[in-house]
C-alpha cells in the first residue's frame, strides 16, 4: 500500500516538474507592452538605434528570442515596426482595459483588482487628497517625471557612455 502511494507521489512530482519547466515565451506568438512607452531597437543592444516606440498595451508578434534580455518582435499595427525589445517591457498577458458590465463580470477577481482596476491614478488621487502633507512631495515627483530636462533619452545614454569612455560588456 505504501509503495503504491510513493509511486503516485513520484509521478506527481514528475508531472509538475515538467510543467514548471514550460517557458512562457515559447508556445505563444504575441505579447503586450507593459510599460508606458518602450523602445524598439535596431539590434539587441542597449546602445543600438531606436527605430520607434510602442505604447502600453500594444501587441507585438514574437519573431525570435536572441537571449534572456531581448525579444525580436514585429508590432501588430497597420504599419508594423520590427526590431528588438527588452524582455522586461513585455508580458504574455493581454493588457486591455476591462471595461464594465458583462466582460468585467467574466474577469477573475484578482485580475480585476490587480491588472488595471486596482492601484491606479484614481487611488493615488484619493490618497493625495487624504494626505495633504504629501502635496509638495507629489508635486516634486510630477515635475521630475514631466519636465523634459530630466527625461534621459536613449541618445543621451549613448553620449554618456561615449564621453565617459566606458566600454560596456552587454549580456544578450
Amino acid at each position: 500500500m505504501i509503495h503504491r502511494w510513493l509511486a503516485v507521489l513520484i509521478l506527481l512530482v514528475f508531472v509538475l516538474g515538467a510543467g514548471s519547466m514550460w517557458n512562457p515565451v515559447f508556445g505563444q506568438d504575441a505579447m503586450s507592452v507593459q510599460v508606458r512607452s518602450s523602445n524598439v531597437r535596431e539590434k539587441a543592444s542597449a546602445l543600438s538605434k531606436v527605430l520607434g516606440k510602442l505604447a502600453y498595451g500594444s501587441r507585438v508578434s514574437i519573431v525570435g528570442k536572441p537571449g534572456k534580455s531581448w525579444i525580436q518582435v514585429k508590432s501588430q499595427q497597420k504599419t508594423p515596426l520590427a526590431g528588438f525589445m527588452r524582455t522586461s517591457a513585455l508580458t504574455k498577458k493581454k493588457l486591455k482595459m476591462k471595461g464594465t458590465g458583462a466582460s468585467a463580470a467574466m474577469a477573475k477577481a484578482d485580475d480585476v483588482a490587480l491588472a488595471g482596476k486596482g492601484f491606479d491614478k484614481e487611488i493615488e488621487d484619493a490618497y493625495r487628497k487624504k494626505n495633504v502633507n504629501l502635496t509638495s512631495a507629489f508635486a516634486f515627483l510630477d515635475k521630475l517625471e514631466d519636465d523634459p530636462k530630466f527625461k534621459v533619452k536613449p541618445e543621451q545614454v549613448v553620449e554618456f557612455v561615449k564621453k565617459g569612455k566606458l566600454k560596456p560588456k552587454e549580456v544578450s
Binding site: 507593459q34 508606458r36 534580455s69 521630475l144 517625471e145 549580456v171
Partner: peptide
C-alpha cells in the same frame, strides 16, 4: 546634480536585468 544623477542612473539601469520599468527610472 539631478540631471547628472539621472544620466548616470539611467545608463547603469540599461545594463541591469530590468532596464525598462513602467515609467522609467528616476533618481533623486
Amino acid at each position: 546634480a539631478t540631471l547628472y544623477l539621472n544620466e548616470l542612473g539611467s545608463t547603469v539601469a540599461e545594463f541591469s536585468d530590468m532596464p525598462e520599468v513602467y515609467s522609467g527610472y528616476h533618481f533623486i
